[in-house]
Every structure is written in C-alpha cells, then in structure tokens.
C-alpha cells in the first residue's frame, strides 16, 4: 500500500519521468506479447520436440540412452537435495547429509564418465566418447574442466604470492599470458599442441584435449580470484597457526586456504557459470555438445530455416543451467559462510 503511494507520488512529481516509465512499460508489454505470439502461433517446435534425445545425449546409441538419463536424474536429485535440505542451526554441528553432499557432488564426475563409457568392470556395453553429445557432454565438459582448473588455479595463486622469485614471476607470466589470449585460440592451440607433448603411441581424444586446454585457460582466472582471497587473510592467522606448532603446509591447508577459498566463492561462481557458457565454443572444434548438436540439426534439410526456434530453446536451456548453478553456489556460500568477523576491532 505504502509503496504504491510512494510510487504514485514519485510519478506525479516528475512528469517527464512518468512519460518515460510509461513508454518503457508499453515497450516491454509489446515485446512480451509479440514473443508470446511467436512462441505459440508462429514457431514450429518440432525441431526441438522430435530431437529431444539428441539434445540430451547426442549420438549416444538409442538402446543405451537410459544411461545418460540415469546420470542426469542423479544430478537433478542431488541438486534438489542440496537446495532443499535444511541448514544446520547456528551453534550446532552440521548433520551427516550436509557433510556427505560435497563428496557426492565430487563423485558425480567419475560416476558420469564410468556410466557413459561403460566397458570393462562396469558390466555395461562400452560406448566410445565419439558418441557422447548434447547436454550430457556440456555438463561433463564443464565439470571436468572446472575440477581441473580449480587446483591448477590454486597452485598458480600460491605461486603468484610465493616468496620465491622464480615461482612468483613464472606464475605471473603464465596468468598474464593466458588472460591475454582469446579462449578460442587456446582451444585451437590445445587441439594442435597437446598431442605434440605426448608420446606418439598415446593418442588422446578430442574431448580430453579440449578439456585440458579449457582448464589451462580457466585456471588463470581462478588464480586471480584465489589470490584476492589469499591477500585478504591477515598475516596474524599464519602467526597463530605457527605459534600452535603447525608447519607451513598445515597452516596453508587448514587455516589460510579454507578462508581464502571461502572469500573467493562469489568470484569463483562467476567463473563456473562462464565456464559452462564457454563450453559452447567447443562446437567450433567439432564437439557435439549442446550448441554443436544444434548446429548439426540445423544442417538437416528437414529442419531448414528453424534457427530461431533452436536458439530460443538453447537460450532457455542455458538459462536454466546457469540459474541452477547460481542457486547452488548461493547455497554453498551460505552453508560455509558467514565467517563472522570478530567484533570489537
């Protein structure tokens, strides 16, 4: 009620402002109506509905599609549990579920790889990674490169803040270099260069090469975020750890890094979301993740000219994924924070 009165008073006071507000509202309404009309009446959604399995798992063999579906189902369940499980009340120990969640999340990547690849030891038919695609591949690429980039980034950040000039300058050079080169260039270099560093008989596939290049790129950005966290830990924390007899490694691992990472979580979330979106660049390397599969569908004569439908659908999918990630990250942030800073300082 009161807010409405405030709004009205505000509008009456500034006639030009209210004209502008009205224009914007009208424009939005028109855009919304036009879009709605297009979605319902004009668009032909068969390009999406007929190809749902392809969007989910690409060229994965039809009789094995339950495998990626089970994996996605597990991730969805884990997401919901993470978001909805009650948080421990302040002053109490977190319950066993809260303690288990991070480990379950970590488990998802190797589990996904095992379920999708199958073969020896799993009792499932082996499926070559060439046949992986769609949403499943997008998630695997994001997860794998993120999981690789995080430790790399932490190591770089530690190098960057090290007392040893070699380490410090080396890390800085690497970080500056990676940040100066566009991601797509790094990805192409990865495809061409990574094989050169490996013995001839060890031929690794495109997916792995892309993940490695991607992680090398992302680690430079992760490093800068983690460095920010490291620098905001007062030196007295290290002193207190030292006075308790902890050695340098223990002090880093138990006292400094946990706090630095906690502080870096919001920035790292941004990196993770960027990572997810940037996996679409791998379509240019011929990987059939979400964007790649869409492009190959559009090349199919049956769906000629359905660009708009496909890209709107893709946008919605990416939006959903990013929103879920943002929600999870917020949850993470809240469950480990706040680090209440000591009062009276």
């Amino acid at each position: 009620m009161q807010r409405r009165r405030q709004l009205l008073r505000h509008l009456r006071r500034h006639p030009l402002d209210s004209a502008l507000s009205l224009a914007i509202v009208l424009l939005l309404a028109w855009a919304l109506w036009a879009t709605g009309q297009w979605v319902v009446e004009v668009a032909d959604w068969r390009v999406v509905s007929a190809n749902l399995p392809l969007y989910v798992s690409g060229a994965y063999p039809a009789d094995q599609r339950w495998r990626p579906l089970v994996w996605l189902g597990l991730i969805l369940t884990l997401t919901l549990v993470t978001l909805l499980w009650p948080r421990p009340r302040s002053g109490q120990r977190p319950g066993p579920m809260r303690v288990a969640l991070p480990w379950l999340w970590l488990l998802m990547l190797p589990l996904g790889l095992a379920v999708l690849a199958g073969g020896a030891g799993t009792g499932l038919t082996a499926v070559s990674s060439r046949a992986w695609g769609g949403l499943v591949l997008t998630l695997l690429l994001t997860g794998a490169s993120g999981l690789l980039a995080l430790p790399l980034g932490v190591i770089l950040a530690l190098g960057r803040t090290s007392d040893l000039p070699v380490l410090r300058h080396g890390s800085r050079l690497y970080i500056d270099l990676m940040r100066a080169v566009p991601l797509i260039a790094v990805l192409f270099f990865g495809q061409l260069l990574v094989p050169l560093f490996l013995p001839v008989e060890l031929e690794i596939n495109r997916v792995v090469r892309a993940v490695v290049a991607f992680a090398l790129f992302a680690s430079a950005y992760v490093a800068e975020d983690v460095r920010g966290g490291l620098q905001s830990i007062p030196p007295t924390q290290r002193e207190a750890a030292a006075a308790l007899g902890l050695n340098a490694w223990q002090s880093l691992q138990l006292v400094v890094l946990p706090q630095a990472l906690q502080i870096a979580i919001p920035a790292l979330t941004n990196q993770a979301i960027g990572l997810l979106q940037n996996t679409s660049l791998m379509a240019l390397l011929g990987l059939v993740e979400l964007l790649g599969i869409s492009r190959s569908l559009l090349a199919n004569p049956a769906f000629i000219g359905r660009h708009l439908e496909v890209y709107v659908w893709l946008a919605a999918l990416y939006w959903l994924l990013c929103t879920a990630m943002a929600l999870l990250a917020r949850r993470l942030e809240r469950s480990v924070q706040p680090i209440p800073r000591a009062p009276g300082r």
Binding site: T236, A241, A243, G245, N247, Q259, P340, R341
Partner: peptide, 21 residues
C-alpha cells in the same frame, strides 16, 4: 617447532580461526 610444541601463546587480537568452530 620443538619449542612451539611446548610453549603456548595468547595474542592481543585473539587470532582465533574464524572459519572453524
């Protein structure tokens, strides 16, 4: 480090670890 295992210290600013219970 041998000394620190046998000598305790208390600081003006407490220096507790804020991320731990």
């Amino acid at each position: 480090r041998r000394i620190r295992r046998r000598v305790g210290m208390v600081f003006q600013q407490f220096n507790l670890f804020p991320h731990l219970s």
